[in-house]
């Protein structure tokens, strides 16, 4: 593997990292410690590896690391942790919308990417923007309910 150095911003921090030409962004992020990015299907079908790249969600498994050169990457580690959860993390936990949890980092990042653009999405917008995140546990109802409650609690009006 021919490694080359790229610069990028990960969770607000400027980084300089060696990447292989054929290395995926998923592989790179996990290799350097961002294990909140999950490897589910590794073919762009499940959304567990979702990260935000330059303000838009992508499947990190389908993104070559070099495509993120010069870019801004956000992973779940940027949002919060067990002691200080992000409002999205808290909303999902409060609603009991998390079972095995494997899809949740990607799900939350897809929700964040939409909320960053629109304070109070409609149900249709939620469905469209979360259509690339599969959850095999919950059946989605509780996830959608948690998101609706969060927006309502923040004073959003659909």
């Amino acid at each position: 593997m021919n490694a080359k150095t790229i610069q990028l911003t990960i969770n607000g921090e400027a980084r300089s990292v060696d990447v292989g030409a054929g290395e995926s962004l998923l592989h790179l992020l996990r290799r350097i410690g961002f294990t909140g990015v999950k490897n589910g299907c590794d073919e762009g079908a499940c959304g567990a590896c979702t990260v935000i790249l330059n303000g838009r969600t992508v499947n990190a498994c389908l993104t070559f690391a070099f495509q993120a050169a010069g870019g801004r990457v956000e992973t779940i580690e940027f949002l919060g942790n067990f002691e200080n959860p992000h409002p999205l993390q808290k909303a999902l936990a409060d609603e009991g919308a998390v079972q095995c949890g494997y899809c949740i980092p990607g799900m939350i990042l897809s929700a964040k990417a939409l909320l960053d653009r629109k304070a109070a999405p409609t149900d249709e917008e939620w469905s469209l923007h979360l259509d690339g995140n599969l959850c095999r546990c919950t059946g989605y109802e509780k996830i959608q309910s948690a998101l609706r409650k969060l927006v309502a609690a923040q004073g959003g009006d659909q």
């Binding site: 969600t57 992508v58 469209l128 979360l130 259509d131």
Partner: peptide, 9 residues
């Protein structure tokens, strides 16, 4: 077209 992530990319 497929999913949001793939529409973005």
């Amino acid at each position: 077209f497929v999913t949001q992530q793939i529409r973005n990319q």
